[in-house]
Design a protein around this nucleic acid. Sequence first.
RNA 1: GCCGGAGUGGCGGAAUUGGUAGACGCGCACGACUCAAAAUCGUGUUCCUUCGGGAGUGGGAGUUCGAUUCUCCCCUCCGGCACCA
Length: 809
Amino acid sequence: MNNQDNSKRKIFNHKAIESRWQKYWEENNIYKTPDKMADKENYYVLVEFPYPSGNLHVGHWHAFAVTDIFARYKRMLGYNVLYPIGFDAFGLPAENAAIKHGLNPRKWTEANIAHMSAQLRSMGAMFDWSRKVATIDPGYYKWTQWQFLQFMKAGLAEQKNVPANWCPSCKTVLANEQVINGACERCDSEVEKKDLKQWTLKITKYADRLIDDLDELDWPEEIKKSQKEWIGRSEGAEIDFPIKDSDEKIKVFTTRPDTIFGATYMVLAPEHELVKKWLEEGKIENKEDVENYIKEAKKKSEIERTNAEKEKTGVELKGIKALNPARKKAKMEDSEIPVFIADYVLAHYGTGAIMAVPAHDERDYDFAKKYDLSILQVVACGDLPCAEKAELINSGPFDKMGSEEAKKEIVNWLGAKMTKTYRLRDWVVSRQRYWGVPIPVVHCEKCGSVPEKEESLPILLPETDDYLPSDDGKSPLAKVPEFVNTTCPVCGAPAKRETDTLDTFVDSSWYFLRYIDPENEKEFSSMEKQKTWMPVDFYSGGAEHTTMHLLYSRFWQKALFDLGLVKDKEPYKRRLNRGLIMGPDGQKMSKSKGNVIDPDEVVANVGSDSVRMYLAFMGPYNEPGHYPWNPDGVVSIRRFLERVYGLKFAIKEESSEELKKLLHKTIKKVREDSERLKFNTAISAMMVFVRQAEKEGITKADLQAFLKLLAPYAPHMAEELWHELALGESVHTQEYPEFDEALIKEDTIKLAVQINGKVRAEIEIPADASEDEVREVALANGNIKKHLTDKEIVKFIYVPGKIVNIVAK
RNA sequence: GCCGGAGUGGCGGAAUUGGUAGACGCGCACGACUCAAAAUCGUGUUCCUUCGGGAGUGGGAGUUCGAUUCUCCCCUCCGGCACCA
């Protein structure tokens, strides 16, 4: 047997305890969350809902079980806490499984949801299952379609030609956010650029607000910064450069209009409209060279083209000359400048054309050197090329003016305008795959692309057995005639349905609004419910969603806000990016590495409480570090819980003053650490307390207080002991214990005494001792005396309650 | 290249406003128990040491009575952006 008499730990049967209390909680509806409770404030704790894959993994436990600690803690503090659960259930894995194993994606997904739900219940989390949401339910996606229609009517959703990212392996387009280093986010295949007609959402219209509204959010700075950089706002001017002997103009975007007098040539992207036009009109003398260059540029992948290391190439458009508008207006020499095409200028950024200022831009400098173009310094910033802002030179009327001032002055003087440009592209939401929400649009020969009637929603995803995507960019839905052939909702003539489905990130852009009103058949989420729950108070999720889900759903919320459909312009008040659990070898868990930890197995061995508490103990929850799973670590938490269980045999009538003090210090520490998500140090404090209580015994009242502290961390164990000690209904409906400030204060304190910054002694003094008293005690100390022999005290420093430092020579 | 964040024992980590660096846990060592092992309990555990001490939070300088904490320079790792005009 594991339990000998010398052990204070007591083995418990975690399986019996878990099933007993999980059943009890369910039968008594402990976690059913009302929309309103008298004299309780609502608090909404959210975790990104999972994709229903085959099995729960450790990452799911880390996400849901540890956040559950926080939710339970808030609940005990007196909030009416909503902690919902659901499934983000459309998406490629189901479809790929269907193709590979001949399964039905809906059946496959629903089976996974059932299995995962059972696994999730084993966590003993305070999920309110009555609010469960799944994006594949017609009752849910009806509203996804409905919101899409509202966006369409508001001009926020439109079908247009875009340079789309095509994944040749998934055979669908992807949004920019879903292309990671030129590869598909899902399958890692290299993504191709194709011009395709796709449904897009106008997220770019919200670029400024998506940046500016970040300021009000209680989010980690690194997330805000990443989003800002992803949106990539840059402020500058749009300036027209006239073409010589023509009415045409080249519009450029520049952040440095102050350098315009040094623009000695221009560059257009090879795809620029004007190049096409001039070629057609026969204005370009070296037509063949130019056409060849364009062809070559097309062949290169995006990654090749945007590699800064690569030597710059380009071709001059012979027969075309542009005029530098500033030099011309100031009647200066050399206002006529050559025009090039070069692939270092990108068609989809700014205006697709630049004024090149080789003296003050490294890229332009390299290019000018290579093609022997003139380089003219116009800012006194040092050795060329230099981009620092400084006083202007060789700039006619603007000489001696500083860069910043000159920017505005020059733009004004030229009659140009200041403007902003963004890296962010519109969100391409159509997917050429089966397992998603059908886009509720009908294409009619007469009426064009028209929205479905709202009363026809949901447009159900049809049953089929051919899920194979095709190379021609058509969704498998195109192969289901009963689905495709319909009538126009406007004129009633025969028409064809849109066959693309929506990106799953659309489904997840509003799920938190459904949790608060899951049964509503009239609205996607009523204003009334929003008033009680929104915005989300605390949102925990993975760092990988920073520029995907987190950005999309903020946009979605803002778009709904503008339509008067939601009450908040931001969906999430506080956001936390969680860390990652690694394999025992410190590597990312993967089947091929054989370092995957199966939570079911560990839970079977040591119990749910041990697993959730170990995951909370590994490191600070609010720092997205990488924490290796230590199999011995989870066992150590189990040992801790056995000590806790053993405390019921250590109950005595009266406990020591010391233990009482320790209890109140522990309450303070655990409470504060839980609030700041430092569950690791909260657990450490509980361990210290338990060690002491075990040693000297504890009163029932003190144990009761401790169990309340433990309850959010080890809900089953806390409940078990609560009932064994006959303390009342459920520990989880109790109020959080308060600490007594008077008990935390010490009468005497231990003080380190340093000589010249080195600790030489430790003295014990009354907490309210005066400096003179402290000095007396310190100088009387034997070791201090010894170290002060032959030395003169220069200075005596006493920082009350902290330290004594004696400076001696 | 630019911008963030981080770097602390063998390992995960702690140190809330500058005040005894290494809490708590893992691992390891020794002891108790045992025929023995495991388990358990106890003790120790940053490094060096002539046992007086000395060094020490990536490296180097600085401010301070005192620096993991503040300032400057450098190195490494992680993340975001990157031919973005």
